[in-house]
Write a protein that binds this DNA or RNA. Structure first.
Lengths: 233, 233
DNA sequence: CGACGCGCATCTGTTGACAGTTTTCATTCT
DNA sequence: AGAATGAAAACTGTCAACAGATGCGCGTCG
């Protein structure tokens, strides 16, 4: 079976002339990987892809080399490129990096906080509390994501923001991916409130600590979920 | 790994068959950029490079796309690829990221510290003190680099280590590069001693704080050097 | 004398083809 | 039946060539 069906709906790569074919392909491949349409571990066949997108192999190879540098795929000489597969250890390592970056974002944000932003963040936490009470995880998840993105996106450091998102994205390659979102909703939101207070106080040290701890605790919940109830090796 | 690869005679790339031509080219290009042989802002001519290395343009394009994803070069459609040039603001942003990562490394290391490692780190700081007293910056710099590398390399998190080095490398693209190493040697080494004490105590919070602060203060020294004495824009 | 426009040289974007390697699979031998 | 073997298929690595875009220089015109 081909890894990518040749009849699949071709998302509009034909419109492209202002931007290079390579970067359009890269975006599309990244999308396929992050949404799970290309599952971790599978090989990416250059010929199939070039047929599917109607291009030659050159731009596809360039796109995959870029994705390799971003850590989304792995290139093995004479064998091909494979969607990267993250081990539990990899995921845990990423959590540490993410905690460090998120903590720094919290610090920076605390030092440039505005009333409007604080109100918006508070509103989001309130809404998450309401949703958490109903136990609706599917509703909670996007709110939670938006909350974190708003913090990192408002910290004023574009480099930090880009890096943070890169690592969050990488967690999609973790096969037991459902676990990264597991853990108590109410507990997590209580941590959010601690973060809010620190941000409101304008205390950089405190904000960094609460933000760091939030991710560190999420890491703990992940570890507990992994080697606790069921075997996921 | 040292920032500057000291394997000089790589002029002939034909030795390699076990590794792809692309990755060999990428390593060589990265070396040229980090050593400054290819200065920030200059355009990379694909034809010249392919002549120089005796290959076709394909592998070179793949290598540059990889370097683009790593943030070392910038690709402008139909214009070519340029060695990335870092503004002061970029450099400052990188310092924040670096501080976050280094602080996390300190925390991790404090929780897995060994006597042998502590002795080695202490020896390094002592040596730096001796060199700093002589005011010999050229001797101080490699010691300082080795000290930081040993900490990050011993923290047990390969992802964090790789990321930290990537950002330290990126600072080479800052045009006023000499400034990133400026600042008082003795002052900096006093911060090293505070880090050592925290590491020895095994207190993760404290280690993270001291390590974070060390880079944060270096950032301050950079800012002071930039918009203080002379104009560097 | 300066500004505009045209044509040429240079370079990048992309393609199709060839060479070498890995994988597959049918066949043979034990 | 199972392992070993060898040829063919499939795929990646690399290259050379073509097409389109950009920038430069020259000539012309106001």
């Amino acid at each position: 079976m081909s890894i990518i069906s040749d009849s699949a709906p071709l998302s509009d790569l034909s419109v492209v002339k202002s931007v290079s074919l390579t970067s359009a392909l890269e975006k599309e491949l990244e999308r396929l990987i992050l949404t799970g349409e290309l599952e971790p571990g599978v090989r990416i066949n250059e010929i199939h892809l070039s047929n599917r997108f109607g291009t030659s192999r050159g731009p596809i190879r360039e796109a995959t080399r870029s994705l390799e540098a971003k850590g989304l795929v792995e290139v093995v000489r004479n064998r091909g490129v494979f969607v990267r597969r993250l081990s539990v250890e990899d995921a845990v390592e990423i959590y540490d990096v993410r905690a460090a970056l998120f903590g720094q974002a919290g610090r920076l944000l605390a030092e440039r906080m505005t009333d409007g932003l604080l109100a918006e963040l508070t509103r989001m936490v309130d809404e998450m509390d309401a949703v958490a009470e109903r136990g609706s995880f599917d509703d909670y998840y996007p709110l939670n994501l938006g909350f974190h993105n708003l913090i990192v996106g408002s910290c004023g450091n574009r480099t930090l923001q880009a890096e943070y998102h890169r690592f969050v994205n990488k967690l999609h390659l973790f096969r037991a991916r459902a676990l990264v979102q597991g853990g108590g909703l109410a507990v997590s939101n209580r941590e959010h409130r601690a973060m809010l207070e620190a941000l409101a106080s304008g205390d950089g040290d405190r904000a960094q600590m609460t933000h760091w701890r939030h991710v560190a605790l999420a890491k703990r919940r992940l570890i507990a979920a992994v080697d606790g109830p069921a075997r996921h090796d």
